[in-house]
């Protein structure tokens, strides 16, 4: 779920931080720049793991900063495809389930990756799975409440990562019209996508809410697997 990435960068240390040991000052600058940000095609940065190489601090003409060339290792959140992780259900709608890891919220289980047969109950606002394989999809909502296994909000689910996707929505060159309009910023927000999303699946034996599989012995596996 977490990886180490090696990254090379140049950081500037402000004179007010010259009192700190350089190593600490550089780490702070790097953490300020990377922590809790998504790096395209790398993942969600957590924090600096360690510094590998630091060049000599140089002063450039024009400012009093010390500029360091640094190679460092970064702890990054990037689960690999097919990895199994634990997450909590954040919300559900007709199209699927949204999960959260606390520090990362853009984890989705689309409808096709829900266990078969399952349906969305609009009254409970939750998906449920019917363990009885005989019932047809059409009358799932008529099944007795007792046979439904709900995936409620707040429940801990075990999911398999199927895919992850990065979007790089860089704001293009400012358009003349936008600069004039006061609500330009509000418009920009509408079309925004999460820069990093993970698609997960629970359509498999052993996946789904953790309590489902608690104490489930081998018999279940043999019957349904």
């Amino acid at each position: 779920m977490f990886i180490l990435s090696i990254i090379k960068d140049t950081v500037a240390v402000h004179p007010s931080h010259f009192g700190l040991p350089p190593q600490q000052a550089i780490t702070n600058e790097l953490n300020k720049k990377y922590a809790n940000r998504v790096l395209h095609d790398v993942g969600l940065c957590m924090c600096v793991f360690d510094l590998a190489e630091v060049g000599e601090g140089k002063v450039r003409y024009g400012d009093g900063f010390l500029w360091y060339k640094v190679v460092f290792r970064l702890a990054v959140f990037r689960p690999f495809p097919s990895e199994v992780i634990l997450a909590k259900v954040k919300s559900s709608d007709e199209d699927g389930i949204r999960l959260t890891l606390g520090f990362f919220d853009d984890v989705y289980v689309p409808r096709i990756f829900l266990p078969e047969p399952s349906a969305f109950d609009p009254n409970e606002r939750a998906h449920f799975w019917v363990a009885d394989p005989d019932s047809a999809i059409s009358d799932l909502l008529d099944t007795p409440l007792t046979s439904r296994m709900y995936i409620d909000a707040g429940e801990v689910v075990r999911v398999r990562v199927e895919a992850d996707e990065f979007y790089d929505d860089e704001p293009g060159p400012p358009k003349a019209t936008e600069g004039v309009m006061a609500n330009g910023q509000a418009k920009e927000r509408e079309g925004r996508r999460a820069s990093y999303t993970i698609t997960c699946s629970i359509a498999e034996q052993g996946l789904g809410p953790v309590p489902w599989w608690k104490n489930a012995g081998m018999e279940v596996m043999d019957e349904e697997g």
Binding site: M1, F2, I3, L4, S5, I6, I7, K8, D9, L39, D41, V42, G43, M46, C47, F49, V71, R73, A75, V76, R78
Partner: peptide
């Protein structure tokens, strides 16, 4: 900024938690 190696090693949850 330059990414030299996006996945140089894997970290376990415990290690990240300790860090």
């Amino acid at each position: 900024m330059e990414v030299i190696n996006p996945r140089s090693a894997l970290l376990s949850n415990y290690e990240v938690l300790a860090l």
